[in-house]
Write a protein that binds this DNA or RNA. Sequence first.
DNA 1: CATGGGATTGACT
DNA 2: GTCAATCCCATGC
Length: 183
Amino acid sequence: MIDYGRPVVEVARELLGCVVRHGETAGRIVETEAYHHSEPACHAHVGLTPRTRVLFGPPGRAYVYRSYGIHALLNAVAEPEGVGAAVLIRALEPLEGIETMRARRGRTATRDLCSGPGKLTEALGIGLDLDDTPLGDPIEILPRDAPAPPVAVAGGRIGITKAVDLDWRFCVAGSPWLSRPAG
DNA sequence: CATGGGATTGACT
DNA sequence: GTCAATCCCATGC
């Protein structure tokens, strides 16, 4: 099992190489970012509100929220209960159910099915209804069955305006499935 | 109650 | 490279 109750940066590294499954679709995590309530880029920075309740809840649950009014983004809640922190899943290598993914996303190159946080949720059929559900059912995150892949610390996180200097984006080195090339 | 911003994507120039 | 789409919710009056 994966221990989500550890420091969020450790969990972000640990998740690289693990497999996410939802129904018939599955993919290997190749890119993550860490968010912690102590820094202003994290939603939990504002404190405990209805929106951030899940982030402060027990680790190992899904935090799914709507971005730019359009996309659903998938996070894994980390750190002990009471600490607002989560790992954003930013990109996957498609493994199973690729035709289902293609059907959900439209005629799309395999390379573009899961190469972004909004893309992979659409490909796996993950929506806001899965917010605050345990990682295990219906979304599964399986521990690695192989040694940890080489990790590239890709520098700053993407698409944010605050705490841009934190090097909290992690990629599988050399993976062709990233949302953006590693730093 | 009104307002503004955001962890993005895809279409278009 | 630029830009619109679109909605939840925190904040402020």
